[in-house]
Design a protein around this nucleic acid. Structure first.
Lengths: 181, 181
DNA sequence: CGCTTAAAGCAATTATCGTTGCGTTAGGAG
DNA sequence: CTCCTAACGCAACGATAATTGCTTTAAGCG
């Protein structure tokens, strides 16, 4: 049995590295971060990082993936629109934090080969929400009409994220399209 | 008169650098490209690049900006839907090329401070198209409903760009929303 | 509680990046 | 054609990133 060692010191090191990455990425932006830098901030030897991930983009992707809530409960008020608004609001709120936005941008740079875990999760959530209410629209519609506009703003127009009506507007457009179809 | 020297050798060097960047970015992804690398591929001295752009993100942004047609004529068939579909189709087609997608991702990494020229142009085009037909919807709607879904797919789901109905679907959603409002 | 060995630390080495000063080439204006 | 100088090439340097061999620590298993 291949023994793997995920706990104890390794876990501690990993945690230190994670917070170091998050701090640095927030302070300087994903691309002005280097591995030795992270190592120093984390109080860890650079070698450990090189050996574990090999490469900075790889590491960033991994950290970014972890960052988003693995299995949080989805909103379930019984009313579809309210659920969707709450869900979209969570996404907006999450990426309104500069750390998460920076990590997303960093991840975007090396995305494109396989769908990043990051967004696959969102897609899955969308499917759950859609099917729960008898699926008046496809998961793709949710992605196109809610996720995409939000993520686009996060990456390219971050200062528009404070707009309080954003989530609602996206959801209403989605519902309108669902009705029309 | 500030003499500027845009032709001859400088132009040749620039062209070599451009194709080198495009090749490398396509081959390895924007994050794994370095300036010395580009210089070698271009058969040019690294110093020239450092002096011209200063650093890599700046250079990538500049190349990417150039890449998208600076002042091409917008489609004008007289019919709104056709114009929009053609316009959206152009964007899809443009970013369906791996080079352009990779450059966009590279730009995304350093975006967020100021709106990248890249997307500002698109926004401007959207305004023109909207106002031409008596503006049944805001520029923001075009961005949210057409640009965002496309760009989102370019970055995170590039393999879905081959979908031939994408542009039309986005435009139709936009028109539906316009009617509803 | 020991054994085994995965993972972290350490140190020395190599590779690579980015900078700078200076000489060379050639674009553009007169 | 000639002059001026912008832009490129070259070479040397300092700084930092990445690699590698070896040692040390401690996770997971019996």
């Amino acid at each position: 049995m291949p023994e793997k060692r995920t706990g104890g010191r390794s876990a501690a090191v990993l945690a230190q590295i994670r917070t170091a990455v998050e701090d640095l990425v927030r302070e300087r932006g994903a691309e002005r971060v280097t591995i030795p830098m992270v190592a120093e901030r984390a109080g860890v030897n650079p070698t450990s990082i090189y050996r574990r991930w090999g490469d900075l983009p790889t590491m960033l992707n991994d950290i970014a993936t972890y960052r988003l809530d693995p299995a949080r409960p989805l909103p379930d008020t019984g009313e579809l629109r309210a659920d969707l608004v709450a869900w979209a609001g969570e996404i907006v709120e999450h990426y309104a934090k500069p750390v998460n936005a920076a990590l997303l941008r960093g991840g975007a740079a090396s995305a494109g080969e396989t769908e990043s875990d990051c967004l696959r999760n969102r897609r899955a959530e969308a499917v759950v929400l859609a099917s729960r209410s008898g699926a008046p629209f496809a998961a793709d519609d949710i992605v196109d009409l809610v996720v995409a506009p939000i993520i686009y703003r996060v990456i390219f127009l971050p200062w528009t994220l404070t707009d309080p009506g954003l989530a609602e507007r996206c959801v209403d457009r989605l519902l309108a399209t669902g009705r029309a179809a």
